[in-house]
Design a binder for these strands. Structure first.
Length: 466
DNA sequence: GCATGATCATGC
DNA sequence: GCATGATCATGC
């Protein structure tokens, strides 16, 4: 079959019409004859097979979109299925590699990023671990252009990334630097994937522009028309984004008038009388200050994968509590590499901290700030993660059991690391996950759920006081 | 007093 | 039933 006869390379509509036929089928079903004809050997990834055997084109030069004449770039990406039956993106969407040596000469509008990725043709398939990728079900196919309000933020993200390169800090780039468009690592961590940067002799990890997982989720809900009215926007007037301040400053400006006020005073200001014991009490206050309806999620934060943490400081500036993250499964942790671990993913996120501080019995709003962890501190947290993986792999878990039945563990302690430690996070001691290796001392084959925590001292010194 | 371990409470 | 934010209990 002549590949070129399948669709008109110059026509977006024709390409789309052909692409839509992928929906509700699999690569194996829809292009088995081509795969056989080409003698497919099980090599290549999803995107490569899709390009070569379904669309039947040879890759263009790397700087042009895949369908050059139509100006549209093909991207395939995995979905995961939630417990509630909804689909979410399994990961970030990786776009073109950042060429450190060239990108600093570009403006956004004529940039290689925008030239290649302004118009995307997206193919979302359901990733199922037990299946060959040829058998993944294709769930969603559509094209994507960025709405103006998103594009304004993406342009700022692009500029922030490029500015960091201009400042000679390509080696300090982090996904947490930006909102929708990130600079994610790409390729191995080995020395061979280190790249030169133009304004510093230090080599930097190879990185690519990418759409944050949260932004991809937004795309998915848009193209599947499943967006429900659960989101409220901070920036209801897109014009505000023309202002010279950063997004961070624009968000922070909402909170500054309330610095120094007690919880009650802030509530009163908005005519609210909230339940102080409600689990979402602080989230409600944040929404009120940002002008968002109380029961809604903050659209911009969701799209940017921002982790919001409220911290209550004692009068000596030390947080009352450490900060917890979701529990990990022991069996999964030992199979992971640091590079694709959930903990690293979390630490590379952008955080929004809301600090309250006790003055006597009153809690007052102290300050808010966006923050992401410096690379050097992420490497310190990596030590904790590695130690955790090591103790579980060896079944070296319980050190002793006290008279009252409390188990002392070999897990990484707060005093052993400046950044992070591991502590229980469970309903009670019998709320457990299975262990891959039975504990040497007790023979236990499951253990109380634990998670990684950020140390209070670290929060005070490196986040609040910085 | 603080680090470590254990558990509670809310909301979906 | 479970995730998550919050808090309590133990022991040095």
């Amino acid at each position: 079959m002549n590949d070129k006869a399948k669709f008109d390379l110059k026509s977006v509509d024709s390409i789309l019409e052909y692409a839509y036929k992928l929906k509700n089928t699999t690569l194996r079903k829809i292009c088995s004859s081509q795969i056989e004809e080409h003698g497919y050997q099980g090599k290549g990834n999803y995107g490569q097979v899709l390009e070569k055997y379904y669309f039947g084109y040879k890759p263009n030069s790397v700087s042009d979109p895949d369908f050059k004449e139509a100006g549209i770039e093909l991207k395939s990406s995995p979905l995961k299925l939630l417990q509630n039956g909804e689909y979410r993106s399994k990961e970030r969407l990786v776009l073109n590699i950042i060429n450190y040596l060239e990108v600093h000469k570009e403006e956004f509008e004529n940039s290689s990023f925008w030239h290649k990725n302004a118009h995307l043709l997206l193919v979302f398939y359901l990733h199922e671990a037990e299946k060959d990728f040829l058998d993944y079900d294709i769930k969603l196919v559509d094209d994507w252009r960025y709405p103006d309000e998103d594009l304004k933020i993406i342009k700022r993200d692009w500029e922030a990334i490029v500015q960091k390169i201009k400042n000679g800090k390509a080696h300090e780039l982090s996904e947490g630097d930006t909102f929708y468009l990130g600079a994610c690592t790409k390729g191995s961590t080995a020395a061979k994937s280190m790249r030169e940067q133009p304004f510093n002799n230090e080599k930097a990890k190879q990185r690519a522009f990418s759409l944050k997982q949260g932004y991809v989720n937004h795309i998915i809900s848009k193209i599947s028309n499943e967006e429900k009215g659960v989101y409220g926007k901070i920036f209801n007037v897109p014009e505000i984004l023309e202002f010279p301040e950063s997004i961070e400053e624009l968000v922070e400006a909402n909170f500054i008038p309330f610095y120094g006020l007690t919880l009650n005073q802030i509530e009163k200001n908005f005519g609210l009388s909230l339940n102080n014991n409600a689990k979402n009490y602080f989230a409600n206050l944040t929404n009120a200050i940002l002008g968002i309806e109380l029961d809604k999620k903050i659209e911009e934060f969701e799209k940017a994968d921002i982790i919001v943490k409220t911290v209550r400081l004692q009068e000596n500036n030390l947080p009352k509590e450490n900060i917890s993250f979701p529990t990990f499964k022991y069996t999964e942790l030992i199979q992971m590499d640091w590079e694709d671990s959930e903990f690293k993913n979390i630490l590379e996120s952008k955080f929004f901290f809301v600090f309250y501080q006790y003055e006597g019995d009153d809690l007052i709003l102290k300050k808010v700030l966006f923050w992401n962890m410096p690379q050097s501190d992420i490497l310190e947290a990596k030590i904790v993660w590695n130690r955790m993986k090591d103790t579980i792999t060896k079944g070296n878990i319980v050190k002793e059991v006290t008279e009252k039945g409390i188990r002392k563990t070999y897990f990484p302690k707060q005093l052993e690391n400046r950044v992070s430690h591991v502590r229980p996070h469970a309903r009670n001691a019998s709320d457990t996950y299975p262990l891959p290796v039975a504990d040497n001392l007790t023979g236990l084959t499951e253990y109380t759920k634990h998670c990684f925590w950020l140390n209070t001292g670290y929060i005070r010194d490196e986040i609040f006081l910085k």
